[in-house]
Write a protein that binds this DNA or RNA. Structure first.
Lengths: 224, 224
DNA sequence: GTGTGTGAAACCTTTCACAGCA
DNA sequence: TGCTGTGAAAGGTTTCACACAC
């Protein structure tokens, strides 16, 4: 392929990113942030992969889907690759995000700094419980779900973190979809279906513990 | 292979369960619990897969790794398959579990009913912060990490839910390992390394949002 | 007819190995 | 020398398609 001799070129690829590769990009980025705070200037594919249990060839293949970031004989420039990956992942600009469901988990997520750090701005809080509506948490007022539609417009909300009970999840997700949301991070332990225009990532905490139990029972290699 | 004509036989397979299959077993189980509460007696592989976006052949292959659970012409008996999967996953008996790190996230996990429901018993709470030690939460007293070793013995603790800050995660994980823990569910947004005898499953919440952003940006199919 | 269990084919992912560049 | 980018080989996973059972 034609390579540019100067600085690396990031691209959205041809729309064909292997699923498995996408999942590792975030890991690389997390590691690069760490290297950067440690003052590292460059890193090789084997060094980058080592701490994550990923082979050097795998790292190079993954990155190659998005452009030519490396320098033969040198490796990758930490700051440059970090910025490129942010751009690929879409976190080079902030994402306006709503939190729906202000129960135990919702409140914890509200206090979790990791979202803002990665470019996600919690811009609105919603709950169906009238007893919660109007309460102030972390400088924001909990609103009724009835205000979802108007707030999507007003605050340009794009993503929703769904922390409602399983029985309510599908219904609320559909409402968010109609309101124009494009992505849902679902914490409810149930399958949620939405149209093609909305992406969903689900995190079922109980399910993760179950997976751990399975690995402990059978001697599955976790890669250490 | 030789089949028994009577009821299905569950097995730990030959130790070779495809990684991908293991990840789906929990989904099947979750769906089966739902079907069971709905009063369904039997379910076919296509019905079971449909709601999860999984093909019928895939469902049959996955289940076949662990035995012959199905009845030709009928499908699978819901209650029987549910019990078999619980046995395969190891959640047919309770797992004694400790929660380490009683911050925002830790407290939320403490209030989350999904763990106990699936067979995980929170049997001890630990935190390094002296200001928290001695406090009572959900009927349990927060203990100093110094008591971890004795509590592992006293309460037969097997798993740890690690909800500590990233900087502390590695150190605490090693301590849990030395104490005899066999599995760690890690919520700290960092790589944690332990010996072969300890399994780790990591859940990085920020990373999940990043994956969602990536899917929204590029038009990745989430399977709907 | 319905629906499982399973070889074989198709597809996807990872590893290997090496040309080429600094 | 050190290291990337990448075809080709190896390994794993999913889908197909059908014999067999109820």
């Amino acid at each position: 392929m034609g390579r540019s001799s100067a600085s690396a070129r990031s691209a959205s690829s041809d729309g064909t990113t292997p699923k498995a590769t996408a999942g590792r990009l975030s890991l690389y980025l997390r590691q690069l942030e760490l290297l950067w705070t440690d003052g590292r200037e460059t890193v090789s594919s084997s060094q980058l992969g080592e701490s994550l249990g990923i082979t050097d060839a795998q790292v190079r293949k993954d990155l190659a889907y998005f452009g030519q970031f490396g320098y033969p004989g040198i490796g990758y420039r930490v700051a440059e690759l970090r910025d490129s990956l942010k751009s690929v992942l879409g976190t080079d600009r902030p994402w306006q995000t709503a939190l729906i469901g202000i129960g135990n988990l919702g409140r914890a997520l509200l206090g979790y700094g990791g979202f803002r750090e990665r470019g996600f701005v919690l811009a609105a809080l919603f709950d169906q419980d009238a007893a919660l509506v109007g309460k102030k948490l972390h400088g924001m007022t909990v609103q009724s779900l009835d205000e979802l539609e108007s707030m999507v417009a007003k605050r340009n909300l794009e993503l929703v973190i769904l922390a409602v009970p399983a029985q309510a999840a599908q219904q609320v997700a559909e409402r968010a979809e109609r309101a124009g949301i494009t992505g849902i991070l679902n914490f409810a332990p149930t399958e949620v279906k939405v149209g093609q225009g909305v992406k969903i990532v689900s995190v079922d905490l109980g399910l993760q513990l179950e997976q751990l139990a399975f690995q402990v029972r059978h001697g599955a290699d976790s890669g250490g």
